[in-house]
Nucleic acid binder design. Sequence first.
DNA 1: CTGTTAGCGCATTCAC
DNA 2: GTGAATGCGCTAACAG
Lengths: 355, 355
Amino acid sequence: MAKQVTIKDIAIMSGVSAGTVDRILHNRGNVSEASRAAVEKVLMKTGYRYNIHTSAISLKKAYKIVIAIPTAIPGEYWGMIQKGIEHALEEYSDIKLDCEFSYYNQFDIYSCRSSFASIADRNPNAVIIGATFASETTVLCNKLDENGIPYVFVDAVICDTHPSATYSSDQDACGRIVGRLLNLFTPKDTELAVFGSRRIGNERANNSMKRMSGLKGYFEELAPYRVIKESKISVLDPEESRKNILGFLERNPLVKGIAVLNSRGYILADILAAQGIRDVKIITFDMTRNNVRCIENGSISAIICQRPKLQGFFAVKALIRVLLYNIEEKNMHHLMPADIIIKENLPIYQEIYNE
Amino acid sequence: MAKQVTIKDIAIMSGVSAGTVDRILHNRGNVSEASRAAVEKVLMKTGYRYNIHTSAISLKKAYKIVIAIPTAIPGEYWGMIQKGIEHALEEYSDIKLDCEFSYYNQFDIYSCRSSFASIADRNPNAVIIGATFASETTVLCNKLDENGIPYVFVDAVICDTHPSATYSSDQDACGRIVGRLLNLFTPKDTELAVFGSRRIGNERANNSMKRMSGLKGYFEELAPYRVIKESKISVLDPEESRKNILGFLERNPLVKGIAVLNSRGYILADILAAQGIRDVKIITFDMTRNNVRCIENGSISAIICQRPKLQGFFAVKALIRVLLYNIEEKNMHHLMPADIIIKENLPIYQEIYNE
DNA sequence: CTGTTAGCGCATTCAC
DNA sequence: GTGAATGCGCTAACAG
């Protein structure tokens, strides 16, 4: 184990004092070009990085982080993201971070608008954004960019913004995963179906659309002979959904595999189960309580899950890097793995996901 | 954010000095019963835990950790475990840990014996054990128990030992996962096969055997009508394997799905691919380079992977908890998730697994 | 512009 | 047995 180089070592090696090194490390100015050059040379040579924790204890200022995400319900997708954030706060509890959550209703653009409008007033040092509505997010990001406030995205990216990092899944790949699984799970001579959501104007459906194109891409390239029907689930009217879905299956008796490209697979699964239909394989997204229940009772065959907790955790870690180390890996897009969850590996994933 | 309670706070609250609190926290003796009682009451009430990082900087002593695992080849299973260990050492580089690796040949019981015999002489403060041979491991653990040296297991547990923690997978569940996937991937009227390994006397086959019983359990309970044949792959004689395998498939033309319960699935996949056999689905274990190649070229349908890197990472974290906090969650068995990897989610997992 | 100094939370030594 | 004092690597305020 190589002995850790300290700020004092750097100072001695470059013929200045520790204070000067510190000023340079944190771009705090008031340093002559000569000193800067000398110190930076040594820093480069040694690959020195100061100890983030020691730094934290002597640091008086607390950083304020605002988290702007859709309402986080425990056990649901955003609840898990929040849990990951809280987990990171605990892990790095020695670093003084003040967190404020600012939730909005992901189905209500006005609530998003007013939530985002208040962010700047809170004077954050950094922001975590769970983006749903593109234009609102762009407005917010522009303001943050102007003020030099770093931000990271979780769950989704919005174009023309400059996040310090993004943690999300490759939705196209997710669609392809569902494609392959459906193709494997069902005999070649049966038909398949894809269910999207009917929420119009909600641009988060963006994720759902990317999954759709991935799924279609998979079949076009690798199994073009398979027939894929399309339909939708209405979240608003349960009775209407029921009729629509059962009607759809009556009209398409050959459909033996269904992909639900959002987290509402359980709705379909419950309807089929109630009807005694057991030979249709369902695949859906997100390890929500309802989907878990359906995996357990066998009415859903697989769920694809994109580690919301890890996204939240990493988002905080990225901001710590930016705030303390001043490391800006602008626009770095970190992809989360897409976990395939079936009945047999569910318990362990639950432990990991819910901790 | 609640302000962190410090050792000084505890001292004031319990009417003693910081030094006394420290002596109690670290069981360093020379403390009166009265003080101990008073302080412990306050500790309990506040749920105080000292800052691990601040502690580390003022700590002069370095902890010595010996890692006794099978030879770690980069890209192979044990190489990934080692990578996880190194990753943790970096993440906690402020904590002074001296690590020494002591490798043994997992196919040679004598090499294990001599490696394990030298562990105690190295005077470690803690040990990470990758167990292969049960009796050798028991001997080592007994010696460590006698000397009060904490140890954690990765990959597998050995009975009648007292590890501070164990990080491994539920092999029975892994077998069931393979069972369900094979069942889903192949038509009901085809047959299936399971290939174990032929290494005799190697007790690590233990894992493989547990997987086997899980797989059989799955079919007995949920698909008893399916026919499952058994065979073995010889690692030693490639030409013999080739003949055996092709002979097996000729004799069993209805077999359309094969489980290889160790990491040698690629051997079978390569043989079938060379023969132009493309309609037999293969599932195997561990994300080794060879298996990855076969997933990419389509000759393997899925691999089950048990996060070796995470096991290594957590093992170090657990030892840090034990060494610094004196937290012994004796015999705590932490299960790693069993990831299902197919062609479409491979790239992202590769990133995560290999970092 | 720069070096010095005090103090962050903690471990440890040394008087008392 | 115990408290006070010192130093760990670092930041920040201060005096030059």
